[in-house]
């Protein structure tokens, strides 16, 4: 596993919020998904990685040295000046990025239905996100850092975007870090999962082993699960449902117990419930 981005002991204090000694590995050639509830610290972590936030302590190491212009970013809010026209944006970007591909940018804008004379501020949220994606895809990058890139996109555009990301890491030389509330999207593309809560990393592991480790136990079976296996549980009219860890050991202990696969969303939701217990 080649080093992509390595976050070690990152600490950052804001008014009323802290990133607390964050450690996370984001390997090269992988799509790393940073997930968690609102206010978990996902955006703050991403902003520390791209240099927008200045950490109080800790280090962020890059496997391939972070060269100017070789980081592609998509923010949750469009950063381009609202008065700027889509056509002018290309000229501005050509001054920022040495390898700016204006033809590719124009092609992508056409594809996304963004006219050259539109002002950034006049575009819908979905189109502003696509504009950011068009900019990101029109210059060479070693790293992609994406904060809620699919918000505001329709299902077809989302699917296309995810396919593009998959293609982007196929040469195993680039690193993608993505944060999203759309866990169903992340299940399709993420190789590595970083789950954050209250400014801390709760777990950081590859998606396949994560899915193998966690499971859902429902109804009467859930009442039999020893507490040490329970990550979080919920009660409903149909009985109790619990997210369990160390699924294999639990299956060995209770061979008759039905343990269902847990989705990424289940893992996030039940971790949050477990935290509140």
């Amino acid at each position: 596993m080649a080093q992509g981005i390595s976050v070690r002991g990152l600490y950052k204090s804001f008014q009323g919020f802290q990133l607390k000694r964050v450690d996370a590995e984001m390997p090269r050639g992988y799509v790393t998904a940073v997930i968690g509830g609102n206010g978990a610290g996902k955006t703050s972590l991403l902003k520390c990685i791209i240099g927008s936030y200045v950490p109080d302590s800790g280090t962020i190491l890059f496997g391939v040295p972070r060269k100017p212009g070789r980081v592609g970013v998509v923010f949750d809010e469009c950063p381009y000046p609202p008065t700027m026209r889509v056509r002018d944006l290309s000229r501005t970007m050509s001054k920022i990025f040495d390898d700016w591909d204006a033809e590719r940018y124009e092609g992508l804008c056409r594809k996304y239905g963004i006219g050259p004379w539109f002002k950034v501020g006049a575009l819908s949220r979905g189109r502003r996100m696509r504009l950011q994606v068009a900019v990101m895809m029109s210059h060479g990058t070693d790293y992609l850092v994406l904060d809620e890139p699919t918000s505001g996109m329709d299902p077809e555009a989302r699917e296309e975007f995810l396919g593009m990301l998959r293609e982007y890491v196929s040469d195993e030389e680039r690193t993608v870090v993505i944060s999203s509330h759309q866990t169903s999207d992340l299940e399709k593309i993420a190789d590595q999962i970083v789950l954050m809560m209250d400014g801390k990393v709760v777990l950081c592991q590859d998606r396949i082993s994560l899915m193998e480790e966690y499971g859902l136990v429902r109804a009467s079976d859930a009442d039999r699960v020893p507490e040490k296996f329970v990550v979080g549980a919920s009660e409903s009219d149909f009985g109790r449902t619990a997210l369990v860890k160390d699924r294999k050991a639990l299956a060995d202990m209770f061979p008759d117990m039905a343990i269902d696969d847990a989705s990424l969303e289940d893992i996030v939701v039940y971790h949050m419930k477990g935290r509140r217990r």
């Binding site: 791209i50 972070r66 212009g69």
Partner: peptide, 12 residues
């Protein structure tokens, strides 16, 4: 700030 943030991430 958002534009400055973009520029910083772009290596300026």
């Amino acid at each position: 700030p958002r534009w400055s943030s973009f520029l910083v991430s772009s290596g300026i």
